[in-house]
Every structure is written in C-alpha cells, then in structure tokens.
Simulated assay, not measured.
Amino acid sequence: MKILVLTSSTGGGHDSRARALRLWAESEAAKQAGLQAEVRIVRPLEDGSRFYRLGTWLYNAIQKTCPRLHQLYFPFLERANLHRNAGSILGSRGFRKIVRSFEPDVVFSVHAHLNHGYRDLAMQAMASKPPAFVIYCGELADGPGFSRHWINPEADLFVGPVEETCEAARSRGMQASKTFRSGFLLRPSFYHRLPPDDEASFVRRKWDLNPWLPLLVLGTGANGVNRHLKATRPFLSMGKPAQVVALCGSNDRTLRNLEALPEGHGFTLRALPTIGASEMAPLLRSADLLYARPGAGTTSEAIVCGTPMLFDVSGGIMPQEQNNLNLWKKRTGLVPTCENPGEVHRYFSKGTRPVAYASDETPLRLLEKLHSIVASR
C-alpha cells in the first residue's frame, strides 16, 4: 500500500502527525502485522505557491507574537475558501504531477485546507484508478476553532483521535458511516511504556534529576514559542526544592539565557534543545506538571502520558486551541490556564489533574482501517 500524506507547517501538530504515520507504516510492528506501507509526505501549500507560503508564514508569525489575532485570521480563512475549488488552486499542475508519479492507494490529509480542492486534483490526476481520500483531523473536540474545511462528504473516511472529534464531524454533515475513531496518532515511543522504576532511572541518568522531587516541564511549540524565562525566575528566590526542565526547541536564544541562570537553594534547571520522542515520552510520564500552549499535538502527548497540564494562554487563546481546552474541561471538569508565566510556580505547588487515559490502542489500528478501505475498492 502506498500513502501520500498532505500536510502543512502551520504550527507543528500537522507535520508531527504526518511523520508519526510514516514511522508506524514503516515500523517492524506494522511489518509483522502485515500492515506496512510506503509513505510520502508533501506540503502542497508551501511547495505550490509563494502566496500560500506567505500565508503559512503569517499564520506562524501570529502564533509567535500575538495568538489572539487568530480570532481575526481564522474567521478570514474560514470564509475565503482559498483551496476549495480545484480550478483556482495555485500550483495545481505540480501537485497533479506528484500524484501521478507516486500513484498512491490512499491520499491522507492531516490539514483542514487540503480536503477539498486538493482531493479533486488527486482524483483528476488518477482518473482511471482514483485513490481513497482520507481526512485525519487532530482537533480534540468541537469549538470555535473546528474548521468547516475539515468536512468533505466526498472523502472516503474522516478519522478523529477521540469520539469528541468524530461527534463534531457528524454534527457538521459527515456521514456516520464514514467516521472512524482511530486513537491518537503519535510517534511510537509514546506507546512503549517502560516500568516506572526504569523510567525514573532513565530520567535520573539522562539529565541528572532526582526522580523523587517534583518535576515541572516547560513545553515549547514547533516555532520555538515559549515563556520560559518568566516562568523560571520565581523559582530562584523560592528557596524550596524544585526541578524544572525547559524544552526550548529551536529557540537558541532562550536556551542560552536559561543556561546562564544560577542554580542553588535546591533548585535544578535543565534547558534542552529539541529532543526526540524516545526522550520526550519518559520525561512527560515523569513530570508532575507540563506548562505549554494548548495545541493539539502537545495536549495529545500529555493525555497519552498521563501528564497534568497547566495551559499557557499568555497573549490570548487561538480558536483552534479552544477546541483542546474544551476536551480537557469535559474530561476533567477543569481548565487550568495561566495568563502570567510568572505565576506558574504557584500552580506547580498546588498541582492539576490529568485526563484519565488507559487505552492500549496504537496507530496500527488506523493502518488496519486504511488497508481495509483499499481492499474494498
């Protein structure tokens, strides 16, 4: 089976899910189950037009500098219909060429704006043997940021990680027979849990941390957006034992500034660049609290790892983030948010509640569904 994945680098969650599908499709577990697939990932927006590339840049710039401006930009994109008509899509010839050369059995979209016009272009490119078209929506619940562009009744399947996602799709016109709850689409390490003592030992050895002291993890998005300095400084004057791991991602400036801060009085700080899933998963499972933006990717990882979250809403809440906050409130009864990073230490001392999650499902369930769709055509 050949899968062509359509994604876009608006935020980090879409690309993360695209890479996760490829890792699972090419894994030894998929091979043993007879579910292996060849996966190619493409970004039709960024690669198809300078205009679309500018739109991606603008989306990420707003997310970095003033998330509340997405209260204006998101409704504009909802109404603009930039990618619903195949005949008006920029770079359509190049996209059709990619489809014809790869000849996928499945075109798998993980982005809201790739589900209409690009679906039609894929069908045109392989008119004699059309591929199945599958939409994977990473949103965790209904809300103001659940794009109408996720829904296309002409698609062969709409996939959501949780039942709340599928309910939102059905309420917007997706046929119940075409919706499928697959579970979360994360990298393999998030499903390979070590015994608790082994995970504690890993964290202690890897970053020289005490597994018996409270651990706060400061998360960052794919764009390097974070408020780590403001969140960390109060710990320096508390005089209480505490451990903070600050994930800086691609933000080298924050990394250097954190490394320059003094330690002492029982306070331990570890500032880290981008780390892999094999390190991220045990770190999150060992954390007493994760402070991060309420993006779908980070929130999904926290749910699977059983990590309590404090949501960073400084600069305002994006409509898309509100969807994920809605799920957290539904599942726990609370939405722990913090507008001022300087107050994180107060929440850390009190703690928050994780989302209960005990499923042993993996993305092999999704691959099995894709194989069954291809076999039935």
Rank of each mutant, 00 (worst) to 15 (best):
residue 6 L to V: 00
residue 258 L to D: 09
residue 60 N to C: 12
residue 275 I to E: 07
residue 159 V to W: 02
residue 168 A to E: 01
residue 23 L to T: 15
residue 229 L to T: 07
residue 127 A to K: 12
residue 358 A to Q: 11
residue 268 T to I: 11
residue 186 L to C: 01
residue 265 H to I: 11
residue 310 L to V: 05
residue 287 A to L: 05
residue 160 G to R: 06
residue 359 S to M: 08
residue 249 G to K: 00
residue 253 R to Y: 13
residue 201 S to A: 15
residue 6 L to A: 04
residue 248 C to L: 02
residue 291 Y to V: 04
residue 229 L to V: 02
residue 167 E to W: 14
residue 238 M to W: 11
residue 208 D to T: 11
residue 90 L to M: 14
residue 246 A to V: 02
residue 197 D to C: 14
residue 36 Q to R: 15
residue 122 A to D: 04
residue 325 L to F: 08
residue 376 S to F: 01
residue 176 A to E: 15
residue 357 Y to S: 04
residue 264 G to T: 03
residue 85 N to G: 12
residue 60 N to F: 09
residue 192 H to A: 14
residue 10 T to M: 14
residue 256 R to G: 06
residue 298 T to F: 04
residue 220 T to S: 11
residue 196 P to R: 13
residue 66 C to R: 13
residue 168 A to F: 05
residue 26 E to N: 06
residue 240 K to M: 15
residue 350 K to N: 13
residue 343 E to I: 03
residue 133 F to D: 03
residue 94 G to P: 02
residue 60 N to V: 05
residue 227 R to Y: 04
residue 312 D to I: 10
residue 83 H to G: 12
residue 280 M to L: 13
residue 338 C to M: 02
residue 246 A to L: 06
residue 23 L to F: 10
residue 343 E to F: 15
residue 276 G to H: 08
residue 34 G to K: 08
residue 150 W to P: 00
residue 299 T to A: 03
residue 211 P to Y: 05
residue 139 E to Y: 04
